[in-house]
């Protein structure tokens, strides 16, 4: 009888170990705010986007071109500004995050500055062309032509690139987000700033 009890206990413990090993828990970011801060992969995620964006937009807001735009707005002639897609030159599939970044730039400029933003939605086919053409479209001359077609005096564009390295027991990706404001008419660079962050997978 005792032997049977011993056997049953062992069996039950084994089953419990098996079942608890499979258990998982789902949760929302609102239930555990740390979720949004945790790093799940080397991919560029929302937290990375926020971090790089913050550094760049703060610089833009404090820049001389922003001061100039505010002056134009006070004189009743706010400039028209278009925001073009951010070019992905990384080794990660982050197109979705980059499109979100463009929307974020537009939103903040609309809410916090007096300039007129030409919404991406209204750029329709042109933006598709910019994305399709990639490198040739990122030629400043070509972009200036697109800007002119849209009636923009300035356009904001940028690129994100990475330096990715791999060793036997680690993989590291350093992301660099480079943001520029260009004058459509002259092609002159009116603002540029680069922010960076590093992510790693260490064994």
């Amino acid at each position: 009888m005792k032997e049977f009890q011993t056997f049953s206990v062992i069996l039950a413990l084994g089953l419990m170990a098996h079942l608890t090993g499979c258990a998982g828990q789902h949760m929302r970011g609102s239930e555990n705010p740390a979720l949004d801060q945790m790093t799940f992969s080397l991919r560029f995620d929302r937290a990375d986007l926020d971090r790089l964006y913050k550094k760049n937009i703060e610089e833009l807001m404090d820049s001389s071109i922003m001061g100039q735009w505010k002056g134009q707005a006070q004189n009743g002639a706010p400039p028209n500004v278009a925001v073009f897609p951010i070019r992905n030159e990384t080794s990660e599939h982050i197109r979705g995050s980059l499109d979100a970044l463009v929307s974020k730039i537009e939103t903040d400029l609309v809410n916090d500055t007096p300039i007129s933003i030409i919404a991406q939605e209204s750029q329709g086919a042109l933006i598709s062309e910019v994305k399709r053409q990639q490198s040739s479209a990122y030629d400043p001359k070509r972009l200036a032509e697109y800007g002119e077609q849209l009636g923009a005096q300035y356009y904001i564009t940028g690129r994100i690139y990475d330096v990715a390295e791999r060793t036997k027991d680690a993989r590291r990706v350093q992301y660099f987000l480079f943001l520029q404001v260009l004058d459509v008419e002259t092609g002159a660079i009116k603002f540029q700033h680069e922010a960076s962050l590093t992510k790693a997978l260490i064994g």
Binding site: N88, S91, R95, Q134, R166, K168
Partner: peptide
Amino acid sequence: VGDYEGAQVEARRFSIVEYFFLND
């Protein structure tokens, strides 16, 4: 599917792995 940007990302990933394996 005509997504050359996506293909370029894969090409860069290929290069990282290639470099690592050539050394290792």
